[in-house]
Write a protein that binds this DNA or RNA. Structure first.
Length: 284
DNA sequence: AACTGTCCCTGCAAGC
DNA sequence: TGCTTGCAGGGACAGT
């Protein structure tokens, strides 16, 4: 599932491959992918426009354009962005295809595909001046752990007067943006904190552990190009798999021995409505 | 306001 | 073997 490290890996690929290039033509297959506006709005908003930059906030990709608008792409559960040669065979569930002009004499024309079997993802062109109205979810996103400066003290303030447990808070995109189910479990394991702990009862040293684990796990995962699992086949823009799944210590390891403490077993439960894995011994 | 549960959707795996 | 069922999960939405 694309979470912050996977989206950041895709963003870096886009930075290398599409920034500076002009969109010549846009095809939209499934209407559902452009449900926030319409097929016409996407095609009109992108045709003849140059991509001047690609940013990321949480799991949201935001493309700068040389028009007055911006483009947002969210991969949700199963979305993928793929760069390909013009006319190459498209995978099933390719819902949007953008034809990109060559950037210079050395760069051939390309196609940028949005592929998404489960169709939860979306592609939308919006007006940044109307972001509150058109993109309320993006406008109200919380702090990004790798873009914004987060400290244990900031975590304490974010968690103040919150009733939910630690895992629910990590998954809440209005507080901290970019952490999903996999990285929430990995972060909590490295912080040695149980997912069902209540934030009000955390002392500053626990908050410092959580903060350090968050930064470390996310940075290491970006370094590894994200996590590629068996089911969703996450790959980056150029089709490369990630390798952070090899460093997972709890996610998908239910019933196995904890490699960190060597004693505990990894338990699988349900916390905050999500399948949750944690070590019975090292997380307290 | 803040939290929880349900839904959207497809592919895959387990179980009969 | 071939069917059915359940599960995966990000975020919108309804209900509490």
């Amino acid at each position: 599932m694309p979470e912050l490290p996977e989206v950041e890996t895709v963003r870096r690929g886009l930075q290398r491959n599409v920034v500076g290039r002009k969109i010549l033509r846009v095809e939209v297959g499934r209407e559902r992918t452009v449900r926030r506006t319409s097929r016409e709005a996407l095609i009109d908003g992108l045709t003849g426009v140059r991509i001047t930059g690609v940013g990321r906030r949480g799991k949201y990709l935001v493309f700068d354009l040389d028009s007055r608008q911006k483009m947002m792409i969210h991969l949700r559960m199963s979305g993928r962005l793929i760069i390909a040669k013009p006319g190459a065979t498209r995978p099933a569930h390719t819902h949007v295809a953008m034809h990109l002009a060559s950037a210079d004499a050395a760069t051939p024309e390309s196609e940028l595909w949005f592929v998404d079997p489960r169709t939860f993802g979306e592609v939308v062109v919006f007006d940044p001046d109307e972001i509150e109205k058109q993109m309320p979810d993006l406008a109200r996103l919380g702090l990004d752990p790798l873009v914004d400066e987060i400290s244990p003290e900031i975590l304490r303030r974010l968690f103040k007067n919150r009733r939910g447990n630690l895992k629910a808070l990590l998954l809440n995109q209005h507080l901290i943006a970019g952490i999903g189910n996999i990285y929430a479990d990995e972060i909590l394991h490295r912080a040695k904190l149980r997912p069902d702990r209540l934030p009000g009862r955390l002392n500053l040293s626990s908050l410092a552990q959580l903060h350090a684990a968050m930064i470390e796990v996310l940075n290491n995962a970006v370094q590894a190009g994200g996590s590629t699992l068996k089911d969703t086949q996450y790959v980056d823009l150029e089709g490369q798999t990630g390798s952070f799944q090899d460093e997972h210590r709890v996610y998908g390891r239910g019933g196995m021995r904890c490699e960190t403490c060597g004693k505990g077993r990894i338990l699988t439960t349900r916390v905050a409505g999500r399948t949750t894995c944690y070590c019975s011994k090292c997380q307290r």
